[in-house]
Nucleic acid binder design. Sequence first.
DNA 1: TTGAAAGCGCTAACAG
DNA 2: CTGTTAGCGCTTTCAA
Lengths: 354, 354
Amino acid sequence: MMNDSEATETAPEAAPKPRRRKGMSLTLRDVARMANVAPITASRALNTPQAVSDDILHRVREAVERTGYVPNLLAGGLASRRSRLVAAVVPTVAGSVFLETVEALTDTLAAAGYQMMLGQSGYAGSREDALLETIIARRPDGVILTGIMHSQLARRRLAASGIPVVETWDLSPNPLDMLVGFSHEQLGAAVAHFLHRRGRRRVAAITADDERARRRRGAFATAALSLGMSAGPELPQHTVPAPSSVASGREGLRALLARAPGIDAIFCSSDMVALGVLIEAQALGIAVPAQLAIVGMGDLALSRDLQPALTTVRIDGTLIGDTAARYIIQRAEGKTVAQPIRDVGFTIVERGTT
Amino acid sequence: MMNDSEATETAPEAAPKPRRRKGMSLTLRDVARMANVAPITASRALNTPQAVSDDILHRVREAVERTGYVPNLLAGGLASRRSRLVAAVVPTVAGSVFLETVEALTDTLAAAGYQMMLGQSGYAGSREDALLETIIARRPDGVILTGIMHSQLARRRLAASGIPVVETWDLSPNPLDMLVGFSHEQLGAAVAHFLHRRGRRRVAAITADDERARRRRGAFATAALSLGMSAGPELPQHTVPAPSSVASGREGLRALLARAPGIDAIFCSSDMVALGVLIEAQALGIAVPAQLAIVGMGDLALSRDLQPALTTVRIDGTLIGDTAARYIIQRAEGKTVAQPIRDVGFTIVERGTT
DNA sequence: TTGAAAGCGCTAACAG
DNA sequence: CTGTTAGCGCTTTCAA
């Protein structure tokens, strides 16, 4: 009787003993043997169960159960050219602005059977080239960039790699591929108009030393000047280092007050900075919002619970992450993305500080 | 003349056309051919440059340069059984407590040529089994658990997989493998003693609904009671949902005051909660620290910049992340970890709220 | 130092 | 619906 594994022939020559096979890891072959099917059939039972008879499906599942088999996705990815891996790049996780996005990304990807690799490009962008190389080396099914990838080399390599890319949190004029973001210019101008409507006429800005924050401030300043919201030909402004912090906000308010004592509103580049301004104003005995209005940016969870609650610009980070993940998944599954450039907009959330 | 690729023979039979080879991706073979060496030699030039002659090294590097070749780590990992991938599991990234750790992890791993996969187990621990399966499927060189992995099945599978594991942010009595953390019990007791030394005699606690926070509060309560810091036989305490928030803190203070108006100190399970307590106290006209002392936990960046600055318990999340990463790397390189169970301790940082 | 052969564990392609 | 065959792109092992 013929054994189904390792058919015992009449040995024309000594069977060449296998060289490797030391780690003895449990493979699909073992499962297949146990279920009495070919490896590819076991593979189908696991990946496309509807393409296999109930009987076989049952046997394979039982074998998996009994052995505790876990497929090797490195091997699967190599063979199928689909790694089911998606890389996400953030400037830094510490900045917390992108947290909602990262969370949504992780969840949406996980739900679809993908996994997320997280990379930090650093604010300086110094490690971008190296980071991108290690990313491409994994052959991810997609890359999601939160914030800007500055390095031209990195951008070119990414484009050349053919990997689907979603840029987020901005509206680039010439995107690499797909895009889910909003206009920082529109945002800055909108805040100026908002403050104008609220009757503020001497506005200022505290801005983190970060490219997007600078663009928001630029648009804010332009709009504010054209609305006559400044005493002089320039808007009083103060720049603080990125990542922005409460300390920066406190220091920023003092600096601004020293230079332009008459200001009645401040647009901050983040809620953290705004919180610092609020705290410092309270410490200095400046009434908020009566004497000074404060507008933040980002709508952190804590902002609504401050006293007074913070007026801020809300970006739906979850929507951005979720959408970006879906775009990548669609592409990975060979579908076309209907609206690959998407403006998710922003909302000014008015609360107590204005 | 013989072309060096695809040697043109006198065709004894039609060359069997290759089935695959459509994507035409650039492989090590292409680089090797261009440098006029065997693929394995090109591999050595890239991975162990010292094992190769200068001449060859130069030729291979030039070929890499010219083609823009990026190695395929899926293939490399499959062959070498080293994926250079490390999985990190956090309950949720939104909670921001683990951010420093995640950041340090990413950085230290990246510097050593490893990459980090991030998974969220969720506070409920419902997705743990599924998450762990996808993790093991990638054959990571290590797994880092921040917080507890509750599922027994998941823990057994992880142990059975033979993958190095570091548990962090706690001091488990029976660790899976390695451990970098601190004792939540010691911490709770230390805070009680600290408040006692500062003359507080009517203490209370606001605690997130989370296992470790509960253990801190338990030890805090026990120590406080034995120090006579409570009016009744039980400590006034209030539980808020995890993840904790400023809103929880505000609500918590009101709830506590309604039940136990005489309290003079509150130990909060996080800085966010403590900030809420501080804001609510200011809104209610309660003087901090004169009438009420507040102690947080976590030492967020903003805590030192509040007014008054927040007294809190600092955990060196960066040290935890960095150490955990090093442990995994050492194991992956076949070395033994000298001190695989490590208590990094904690520090009470005294500031204005006490 | 360099290379040939033989897989790593899985799936695409093609046949039955 | 099931199986055979031939790789995916790299590295280990063994030999020169």
